[in-house]
Every structure is written in C-alpha cells, then in structure tokens.
C-alpha cells in the first residue's frame, strides 16, 4: 500500500484510537487515584485526533489553521495558568461556552458553503443544521451568562421580568415555526440567521432566572449541552469522532449533573424552573 492510500485509513485509525482514549480518560477521571492520569490520556486522544485531521486530503489552508491553533492555544494556556482556584466553576463555564460557540459557527459555515450549490441540501442536513444551531447557540450564550453570574459581572440572584414565560414560549414557538419553514425552503439565509439569533436569545433567557448558588449545576448541564452540540456538528459534517466524543460528554454530563443535584438535595427541575414561577419566588 503506497502512502496516499494509507493516509485516509490512517485518519480513521487515529480517530479510532482517540475514541478509546476519550473513553478510558473519562473513566479514569471519575476515580481519585487515576483522575489526573485520565485527564492526560484524554488530552493525548485529542492531540491524536487533531494530527489525524490535519492529514485529511481536503485540508489545504494550513497557514490559517496553524495561526488559529497558535492563538487559541496561547489564550487557553495563559487563561488556565492565571485563573484563581476559587474561580474554577466560572472558568469551566466560559470554556464551555466557547466550545458551544465553535459548534454553532461550524453549522453556520456549513450552511453558507451549501448556499451557492445548485442542488438543495438534503432533508437530513437541514434537520442536523437546525439542531446544531439550537443546541450550540443555547450553550454559547447560556454559558456566558453563567460565567457572568459566577464572576459577579452581573447579579447572581435570579433575574425575572414580567411576561417572562410568555416571551420564552413565543420565542420557542417562533423557532419551531422558523424551523418548519427552513425545512421546506432550505436556502433562505435570513431565516437561518434568524433561527441562530433566536437560539442565542433562548440561551440567555434560560440561565437568567437561575440563582447564583445553583450555577455549578447549570454549568454542568451546559457542559452536557456542549457535548451534544459537538455531536450535532458531527452530524452536520458526518464525522464519527465528533459524534462519539460529543455523545460521550453529553451523556456523562447529564449523569454528573444528576449526581450534583442529589448532592445538593435538589431536583434538576427545581434548579431549572425554580424562578420561572416569578411571583412565587419571594423568599423561597
């Protein structure tokens, strides 16, 4: 087998090994004796997946890629070393939001890539695009609000406003209607960007009414969302490693969120919808 024949197989094998490393890493992270090792194993898996992807024959813009990776790595590393130990939950929240933002941008870029083509995108890709911007958008802005609350850039107390619930329902309904329209008229740029905007607003409104004390649970839930967002982006690109790693984080994140709720003697629904009643939340 010559080298050009080997490369595509090599990419798949790198993804396969990375998948195993993510799984082992996550498993190890759950136990005190092996946690640090697990983190390193998962990081090696990520490096492997990135290197494998760079060998992809379709990838040509190497200067753009390496510059972007360098900028991201520098910011990430400096941030990680400068953040105070007490500020960890909001740091995770912020990083989480960035991941969700990346997933959203992937979906928007893939939508734009399909625009000039003569044929309409398949119904599959329309559905995955919609799910991708919905989950990614909520993860992005929801995490940013969670970060702002924990960092005390804004009030940590539940923020409610009149007609909050009707506004939420109205927004969600317009997302559903817009999605229905997009499924039938898939090349309407304005509708797609409108849907993206609604998803971003929903993320803000989702976290605003939740109190600062409950934020760690919310960050954990949004962590799960960011996994599902990555998986959704994986469906858009039909890429296995995104789907697998995203689903792994999505599912384990939900379990962790439940464990955290139990630890606080709260139910997830009371955390999420505690302040939604608005009027009742006087001295709860």
């Amino acid at each position: 087998m010559d080298i050009t024949g080997f490369i595509p197989t090599g990419i798949e094998i790198s993804y396969l090994v990375a998948t195993a490393l993510f799984f082992i890493g996550l498993k190890y992270l759950g136990s005190p004796a092996t946690a640090r090792q697990g983190n390193t194993i998962a990081a090696v898996g990520m490096l492997l997946a990135v290197v494998g992807t760079l060998l992809n024959a379709g990838v040509v813009n190497y200067s753009v890629i390496f510059l972007s990776i360098a900028i991201g790595s520098a910011i990430g590393a400096i941030g990680a070393y400068k953040v105070a130990m007490t500020e960890m939950p909001q740091m995770v929240g912020l990083l989480n939001g960035l991941g969700g933002g990346a997933s959203t941008l992937i979906a928007v870029a893939e939508f734009l890539r399909g625009l000039p083509a003569a044929e309409v995108p398949s119904i599959d890709s329309r559905i995955t695009l919609i799910l991708s911007i919905l989950i990614g958008g909520i993860t992005l802005t929801g995490s940013l609000i969670a970060f702002a609350k924990l960092q005390e850039l804004m009030s940590g107390s539940p923020i409610t406003f009149p007609l909050q619930q009707p506004v939420n329902i109205l927004l969600f309904a317009s997302f559903v209607v817009g999605s229905g329209y997009f499924l039938t008229v898939p090349k309407d740029e304005l509708v797609f960007l409108g849907l993206t905007a609604i998803a971003l607003i929903l993320g803000v409104l989702f976290v605003l009414p939740i109190g600062g004390a409950d934020m760690p649970v919310v960050v954990s839930l949004l962590n799960s969302f960011s996994g599902i967002a990555a998986a959704a982006a994986g469906f858009v690109l039909m890429n296995n490693i995104l789907i697998i790693a995203g689903a792994l984080v999505g599912a384990s994140g939900i379990i962790l969120t439940q464990i955290m709720c139990k630890g606080m003697n709260r139910s997830l629904s009371s955390v999420l919808f505690g302040a939604f009643g608005g009027v009742k939340s006087g001295k709860g």
């Binding site: 993510f22 890493g25 996550l26 992270l29 946690a35 697990g38 983190n39 998962a42 990081a43 898996g45 990520m46 997946a49 960890m88 740091m91 995770v92 990083l95 989480n96 991941g99 990346a102 960050v219 954990s220 962590n223 960011s226 996994g227 967002a229 990555a230 490693i241 995104l242 790693a245 995203g246 792994l248 984080v249 384990s252 994140g253 962790l256």
Partner: peptide, 10 residues
C-alpha cells in the same frame, strides 16, 4: 466536569 468539557472541545 472540566475534563469532559475539554473533551467536548472535539
């Protein structure tokens, strides 16, 4: 949570 969050950076 933080470690799995890094994995979602996939």
């Amino acid at each position: 949570m933080s470690g799995s969050n890094a994995i979602s950076g996939i």
